[in-house]
């Protein structure tokens, strides 16, 4: 599809980019976002390093900052790809995994483990084995819950959104209830686990989370033609020969992997995914997921790294990045709904 757009400009052709102007807009946007994110990356790595250039201490600091950057990249990639795939699967561009309560599910699993196994449970949460066990639990629960919820039972967006929000609230209250019954010391440790942030991300998981996330993203990339068809809705996708329900379950399972990876690193984020996806749709104006994914991930990386750079190196408030990004994302969400005037 892409090749025809380049080589046969005069002939009638189909493709995700309608004409050369569309192609130019897309290329310019990707270039701008890439330049911005490169700028922020270099800024985060090198800005204001107090030690002598290229000394051991200098390399140590750069190494730590590199881990933060990896975290930012991974979180942006996971949220962007997961949200776009999720919105395609459920055929709706308002609801996101975050809004539908994926984050609350994560909190519940964490709290539940601590609640059931006591102080020993806190220690059980550390390490690679338990990390994967939690991820598997979240994947299973999320897939079951959302397959049931989203497989056409509630065709009405309003009801689906309401159920999602109520579900998020219920799971949150359940966690809250269990947290109240914990001993203060255990609660303290749990809280530290739940409030992830980029400066304090659990980078020890990075060697495992990066390959998994990349593998899932590659699968979504290969599924892109199928996702393009899924975006046309249930009946059209079925007419074109997709088993809609099976595809929906597969997509939701992989989405929950990506979201739990990102959540395990920096804690729940409700609106980052929405922000990435929205920017990708607005800027890209295309159905092709192979064009939307890079745009969304780049936009997410630019926003996250930009706010991290400014907050950490300019205002010295690195811990607040996720909060600020959520603020921006929430504002965009509200603006979008108010401007559109409907869901």
């Amino acid at each position: 599809m892409f090749k025809t757009a380049f080589h046969l400009p005069e002939q009638r052709h189909s493709g995700p980019l309608t004409d050369s102007k569309h192609l130019r807009t897309y290329a310019v946007l990707v270039t701008i976002l890439a330049l911005l994110s490169t700028g922020f990356t270099v800024g985060i790595l090198l800005w204001d390093n107090p030690t002598e250039l290229f000394s051991d201490g200098w390399w140590l600091i750069v190494g730590m900052r590199r881990d933060s950057l990896l975290t930012i990249g991974l979180v942006a990639l996971c949220h962007a790809v997961a949200t776009i795939a999720f919105q395609t699967a459920v055929n709706n561009r308002i609801i996101t995994p975050g809004i539908m309560g994926f984050g609350s599910l994560y909190t519940l699993i964490q709290t539940g483990t601590v609640f059931l196994f006591g102080a020993a449970g806190v220690n059980a949460l550390v390490g690679i084995g338990p990390f994967f066990a939690q991820m598997a639990a979240m994947m299973l629960l999320a897939t079951l819950l959302y397959t049931w919820l989203l497989s056409g039972k509630f065709s009405n967006v309003h009801i689906m959104l309401l159920v999602g929000v109520v579900l998020g609230g219920t799971l949150g209250s359940l966690s809250n209830f269990m947290q109240r019954m914990l001993e203060p010391s255990t609660f303290d440790v749990l809280t530290a686990r739940l409030f992830g942030n980029i400066s304090n991300a659990r980078t020890e998981y990075l060697p495992y989370t990066v390959p998994i996330a990349l593998a899932v993203v590659v699968i979504f990339w290969m599924w892109a033609p199928k996702l393009n068809v899924m975006a046309l809705g249930r009946t059209t996708a079925q007419n074109l020969g997709l088993n809609h329900k099976a595809e929906l379950i597969k997509i939701l399972a992989l989405v929950s992997v990506l979201i739990s990876l990102a959540t395990a690193l920096v804690g729940p984020m409700m609106f980052l995914g929405f922000l990435c996806a929205m920017l990708a749709y607005q800027f890209g104006d295309t159905y092709s997921h192979r064009l939307l994914f890079p745009l969304g991930a780049l936009a997410g990386y630019t926003v996250l790294s930009g706010s991290y750079f400014i907050l950490r190196h300019v205002w010295d408030a690195g811990g607040a990045v996720t909060v600020i990004v959520e603020l921006i994302g929430g504002a965009v969400f509200l603006y979008f709904i108010l401007r559109k005037g409907r869901l």
Partner: peptide, 19 residues
């Protein structure tokens, strides 16, 4: 038929070739 994606006529028709 209502699509969330914005499609041109030709893009829509091209989906007919998906099978």
């Amino acid at each position: 038929n209502h699509f969330v994606t914005r499609l041109t006529v030709r893009q829509l028709v091209s989906f007919g070739r998906y099978p």
